[in-house]
Amino acid sequence: MSKPERWSRLLELLAAEGRLDVEDAATALEVSPATIRRDLDELAEQQMLVRTRGGAIAHGVAYELPLRYKSSRHASEKHRIAAAVAELIGEGDVVGLNGGTTTTEVARALALRAGAGGGDGSAGGGRRQSSDPAGPTLTVVTNALNIAGELAVRPQIKIVVTGGVARSQTYELVGPLTAGVMNEVVLDVAVLGVDGVDPHLGVMTHQEDEAGISRLFVERAGRVIVVTDSSKMGRRAFARICGLDRVDVLVTDSGLSSEMAARLTEAGIKVHAV
């Protein structure tokens, strides 16, 4: 197990339990106690936890795992989801991406496709094409700083960043400045990463300010694609983004249960399990 994988696992255990014991963590991760002690010391230096005698505790009750440590979870599923979503985007489309590990993978898949020359636009259903063959083949509007940073060096993609106040946990920009930009744009498709999908309540996320911006992505888009691994299906989170009636497509992995797939289909959502 690599160090990033160990750190991610340790922070997951800490988020679940509120505290860690060196010996218990070593057993759970199948490494030596000395390795766990070094990992906890380094995480404490980054102020990710508080070291105690024999272990560590979280900084507070509302402990949230930062985006950079979530990226290794369900990685293969997210790669497949991202590749499938890229095939649903037409050349010349204006695409909205909120923050998250799955939407980050979607951004990378779109960048790879654009770098390879893009598609023929058939997935976009006849949407507008770029008038300049040497110019951008895709426009991406995002409130995620990490996505903007990765796409800014891609000449085939026009990147529009919303502005706003950055949340350190997720790299997402939120607040009135973000909303001001979102209210001035029109999207062909919004691709949303979420923290929960409930058949009754719809799609949700943990933070209310992020939910408000994601809701604006929905309102400004002609189509809405929700992307999430199957571990979040049936889950609820604190802040509601929108109901299932606003979702056109859901792309997830093959772990989706047949019962949940049927309920989503009944709600009028086209489901892709990859």
Rank of each mutant, 00 (worst) to 15 (best):
E259T: 14
A109C: 07
G118D: 04
G90S: 00
P155G: 07
G100H: 12
A111T: 01
D248E: 14
F217K: 09
M260E: 13
V95N: 00
G117M: 08
D39K: 02
M182L: 15
A211R: 13
V218P: 01
L250H: 09
G121M: 04
V226R: 00
D132Q: 08
K232T: 07
M182S: 06
E184P: 04
E17W: 01
R80V: 03
E172M: 06
V197P: 08
G163D: 06
A86N: 09
L14Y: 04
G243V: 15
V189N: 00
G124S: 09
N98L: 08
V227A: 09
K232E: 09
T101F: 05
N146F: 03
K232W: 08
A211E: 14
T102I: 05
V160R: 05
Q207H: 14
P176N: 11
G125Y: 12
A221V: 10
G96L: 04
A273F: 04
M204E: 03
R154P: 00
G96M: 06
R240G: 12
N98Y: 04
A86D: 08
D209Y: 03
S231I: 13
D209R: 14
A179E: 13
A25Q: 03
I157S: 04
D229S: 09
V106H: 02
R235L: 12
V165H: 06
S168F: 12
